[in-house]
Design a protein around this nucleic acid. Structure first.
Lengths: 161, 161
DNA sequence: CCATATATGGAAACTGGTTGTCAATCTACG
DNA sequence: CGTAGATTGACAACCAGTTTCCATATATGG
């Protein structure tokens, strides 16, 4: 536990206080998801970050350039590039010539990369099934809706600097 | 947006798929919360991490040692120490002799540290109020409950290595 | 009283991400 | 054409956190 920090949270506005508690809950859950996600795919020589890169290209269904992968992942170009370089060294990606840009290769999954991603998906499926046991579809959907609304609001707020 | 990665998510078990989407939503929301939290307290020369250290000591109400602060924050001893060193250099913490351990000082908020934390709390209050406008108390509570349940499950699962 | 075990701080290396700079490439406009 | 601006990859510096290793302080037990 430990990640308490539970602030007074009850100064005045109870709705704001509830939201503050949700923020803290998101931090806690995020931490554990990353931790267990890493553990889940460690046997495949993957981390959560690299798994996500595989996913971006696998779901696109075609080779992508580094900037395209970065955009799909929601990280910076350089951040994605780091993982791409590592995954290429690990034999999960191969560079293909990019007809549209000489210096910017397209990254394609190798057989190993494709196989690894498929295995990771299977692991994830099992994990989510185990984890969701006994949860109500309705409450899951309600939570997802609220998180999405929150995400949208957080986006708009930050887009006006 | 961009952080799509929306996986097939519909292989078989719809509840597991919904949970998978919640996981992805948690990642997205977490990212934006950190981003905006940093922005929120930047005028106070704080980051989210340092704000959290101030909070740990402020809420304890008494000087704490580095390991105690680390435990309160849910991070490692060395991680907390890094921020403590930085905050001491910034004049927000002062070391006091620890009667119980010569090498392990107690860290106390200076006036500046106390003032800064109070201001950060005020900013956070306003932020949460703005962000929660129009949200229903009931849905916030339902979401908080689900996230807490999820956190608990994630904890138990990982505690058995 | 001493010996071993544990707690602690410090430093370094690592992960994953960011920003910034530079040079090379592309693109678009004049 | 040709040049100005936007993309892009490589590299370096940084933030936040982790693990690991070492040296010292403290605690416990013989």
């Amino acid at each position: 536990m430990a990640t308490d920090s539970s602030p007074p949270a009850g100064s005045a506005d109870p709705v704001a206080s509830a939201l503050t508690e949700i923020m803290l809950a998101v931090f806690r859950v995020n931490g554990r998801l990353l931790e267990q996600g890493d553990r889940l795919v460690a046997p495949l020589a993957l981390t959560s970050a690299r798994w996500q890169v595989l996913g971006a290209v696998a779901l696109a269904g075609e080779p992508l350039s580094a900037p395209q992968i970065a955009e799909a992942m929601g990280v910076t170009r350089q951040g994605a590039q780091k993982q791409l370089n590592a995954l290429e060294a690990a034999g999960m990606f191969a560079r293909h010539p990019n007809p549209r840009h000489r210096r910017s290769p397209l990254y394609a999954l190798t057989d190993l990369g494709q196989r690894t991603f498929t295995e990771a998906m299977a692991l994830q499926q099992g994990w989510a099934t185990r984890l969701s046991d006994g949860l109500q579809m309705q409450e899951l959907q309600a939570t997802l809706r609220l998180l999405d609304r929150l995400y949208e609001r957080l986006g708009r707020q930050g887009d006006t600097p």
